[in-house]
């Protein structure tokens, strides 16, 4: 094999590796572990989760939102239908936050069973709709990716 051929072969092989790496990052589902959040049932089931920072996702139970805007804190309950977890949030939730919306909170579950967080993320769907437009069809998933 000539030197030039070797060089070309190396170039092609390197590009293949680079392409495979990008493809792997884009296509594999390894991000799922990281985007993952626990539902209240799973959080309650996982005893070892008392100290580590975890994410909890679910619906803000209607009628439980107690929002003290001056003190910049809110209390509400996250539910998945079966179980619910009371959440104490310091810092204001985003504006679109409301009862009945999907939300994910990041923080720690205290020994008293209250989940403390300073990060509330509202999961509104990615649809952009006119107000009197068609009803949204794909609002079933809480977190799309």
């Amino acid at each position: 094999m000539t030197e030039a051929m070797k060089r070309r072969l190396f170039g092609v092989a390197a590009l293949a590796v680079a392409g495979a790496a990008l493809f792997y990052v884009g296509m594999s589902d390894m991000g799922d572990d990281l985007v993952y959040y626990w539902t209240p049932s799973e959080l309650i089931a996982a005893a070892e989760a008392k100290e580590a920072t975890v994410r909890l996702g679910g619906m803000v139970k209607p009628g439980t939102l107690d929002w003290d805007r001056d003190a910049q804190q809110a209390r509400f309950t996250i539910t998945d239908g079966d179980h619910e977890v009371p959440v104490h949030c310091t810092g204001n939730p985003p504006q679109m936050f409301r009862e009945g919306i999907g939300a994910v909170v990041e923080g720690k579950l205290g020994t008293d069973g209250v989940f403390r967080t300073d990060r509330v993320m509202v999961k509104h769907s990615n649809e952009y709709e006119a107000p009197d437009g068609h009803p949204p069809e794909v609002q079933t998933t809480l977190v799309d990716e």
């Binding site: 985007v35 994910v104 993320m121 999961k123 509104h124 769907s125 990615n126 649809e127 952009y128 709709e129 006119a130 437009g133 068609h134 794909v138 977190v143 799309d144 990716e145």
Partner: peptide
């Protein structure tokens, strides 16, 4: 967490 990329299919 972020809403996924909007594509024409999801925009009215």
């Amino acid at each position: 967490l972020h809403q996924i990329q909007s594509s024409p299919e999801t925009v009215a």
